[in-house]
Design a protein around this nucleic acid. Structure first.
Length: 207
DNA sequence: AACCAGGAGAGAG
DNA sequence: CTCTCTCATGGT
């Protein structure tokens, strides 16, 4: 068994019973509307804590505007007003427009989900405002594709557990994907556990 | 009252 | 490829 596999088991034993808001939110049954909400959330959470993002999401829901189509239709000032609590509203309003436009031009969510994963990933990365972490979050949590999300927590835990000394994003992503069964549900679970362990900061026993 | 939070883009070296 | 700066809000 590899270090990465051991890490997953260790985290599942320790944090498996717990569920944070993000992972619960992502694990809801997914119709196309919920998938759009995950995409919107993935932009809004950039360098922002979940509590603030939650307010922005509530604002959109309250006015029944939580959809990519409405993001295209909304006046910029109105959109910015609604997402303001999530911070960086100037850039995030543009980014939301960009991703909404992208989905729209590519035939919608269901059409995108049929595409080859890595090709879709490259396309997402060309959208301004979608970097690697956001692209991979969308692929994993909105599209249920087996792409591992690497965030700062993942890099940190790699260092702590001496899994890998490099901090290169693609290197770590491929390393995890190589060591885990290619199953999106397992990837989702593992990444959520990494985030939870980092936030709760319970003492972890090194294996 | 500074400091940080599931980043990304742009520019420099 | 690796820094560094900017973008902005709300919680601690």
């Amino acid at each position: 068994m590899t270090k990465i596999q051991k890490l997953h088991i260790e985290l599942r034993e320790k944090y498996g019973a717990l569920q944070d808001q993000w992972s619960l939110w992502c694990k809801r049954s997914k119709n196309s509307r919920n998938r759009e909400e995950v995409i919107i959330g993935s932009i809004l959470t950039q360098n922002t804590n979940w509590k603030n993002v939650s307010k922005a999401i509530d604002n959109l829901k309250k006015e029944k505007l939580m959809s990519l189509r409405n993001i295209l239709l909304l006046p910029t000032e109105k959109l910015q007003e609604l997402i303001r609590p999530a911070g960086f509203f100037n850039s995030k309003s543009k980014y939301l427009r960009n991703i909404a436009e992208f989905v729209n031009e590519n035939g919608g969510i269901s059409s995108l989900m049929k595409e080859d994963v890595l090709i879709l990933r490259e396309k997402l990365l060309k959208v301004k405002g979608v970097g690697r972490e956001t692209a991979d979050s969308i692929l994993l949590y909105a599209f249920d594709k087996p792409i591992f999300v690497v965030d700062e927590y993942t890099k940190r835990i790699c260092k702590e557990k001496k899994i890998c000394r490099k901090t290169d994003y693609e290197h770590i992503r491929k390393l995890f994907e190589k060591n885990i069964k290619k199953d999106f549900a397992i990837y989702q679970d593992f990444h959520a556990l990494i985030v939870m362990s980092a936030k709760l900061k319970l003492p972890h026993t090194l294996v």
